[in-house]
Amino acid sequence: MIRQRLNACLLVAPLVVFLGLFFIWPLWAMLVTSVQGGTVRETFPQTAIALADWDGAGEPPAAAGDAIVADLRLEVPTERFGDSVRTLNSQYPGFRTLLPRTARAVREAPAGEKVDLAGIDPRWTDRALWLVMKRAMPAYTDANLLAALDLRRDDAGAIAAVPPEMAVNRATMTRTFVISAQVTLLCIAIGLPFAMITASLTGWKRNLLLVAVLLPLWTSLLVRTASWMILLQDNGLINQALLGLGIIDRPLALIYNRAGVLIAMTHVLLPFMVLPIYASLLAIPKNLLPAAAALGARPWQSFLHVLLPLAMPGLLAGSLLVFMVALGYYITPALTGGAGDQMISSVIAFYAIGTANWGMAGALGLFLLIPTTALYLVYGRLSKPAGAA
């Protein structure tokens, strides 16, 4: 008995290791990074000590200026200094230029000479700047989580909204959910009739339609997106066909806008809608619709009261699956959409790659992970067979 259990554990061990390395550990690392703030304290240790007893009211202690000068004279790894600058800059725009400029001036000053920070840059007299530094000193901070929601802590330490010109994350997150919902609705409008037609056919006709809907899954996402960029251009095949048929007199704007994003994403995600609906339709007994017709039901009544309720589990599962996948899309909106059509993944990529601000990237990823996980649990519940526990 013990040997059988040991063999079972050994069989499962590779899967557990795989999940731990490629799923649990990255999620945990993202969570820790989003609340980690110890880099600033490691870069400015003497400043952290000087600001420790300051309650944030009134002017910062005079020793804080001498402390940051001493810290800037120290040799700090470039990567750590850059991380600290990015962390502070996300809370107080201007640190990206202020700290490197001050560091150069401090290191060029003769050793032992008192450095006038206000003379280097008048922003050093701003109490809000020192408050940001003080709040960035703890090992863990909520600064990134608040910034991801366009919030910050004011001078009194209370949570407040950032200025309107800096509030972009909530708008981008809202746009992400709106685009995902629009793509889901389009997939329902196309996928439900397609699945019904496919389920009603047999033989090679059914197989042909299944191959047609599965074909996008066998092609690279980048290739599919690039293909739509070619098709949707002003001189692309779609506009040229419409112009040739006389339906339009000038090319339609189908690329670098919301229309291009919806068309490309719907095409890519359509299989995730069709297949669950198709599976539900196959489980419906073939004699139900003829029975409904024999009892006097019209076709639309048979659809609304018989077919649609029985196909609803597949429809809901497909909708959740499409919506979840659409939330994380990056390359398709980036290539086919305009500036006002970028989704939250583009912002995460900007912080991770463009500015190397992993704390903000982790915080935004966390807020994207929460609804995705909730929807996944709902999807798992809906995808269970009827009568399963």
Rank of each mutant, 00 (worst) to 15 (best):
M1A: 14
V12H: 02
L21Q: 09
F22A: 05
W25L: 14
L27K: 08
V32E: 14
V40K: 06
D53E: 14
G58D: 10
A70M: 09
R86T: 12
L88R: 12
G94C: 09
L99V: 12
R101D: 09
V106Y: 06
K114R: 15
D116M: 04
P122V: 10
R135T: 05
A136Q: 13
N144G: 00
L149C: 13
D150K: 10
D150G: 11
R153K: 15
V162S: 07
P164N: 07
A171W: 03
T172G: 03
V183A: 08
L185W: 11
I188H: 11
A189L: 15
S200Y: 00
G203W: 10
L210H: 03
L217D: 01
A253N: 11
A253R: 11
R258W: 01
G260K: 03
V261T: 08
I263H: 05
L270C: 08
S280D: 08
S280F: 02
L281G: 04
I284C: 09
P285H: 11
L295I: 05
L304M: 09
L304I: 04
L307R: 14
P309A: 07
M312L: 15
S319I: 00
L321N: 03
A334R: 06
D341Q: 07
G354W: 04
L369T: 14
I370Y: 03
A388S: 14
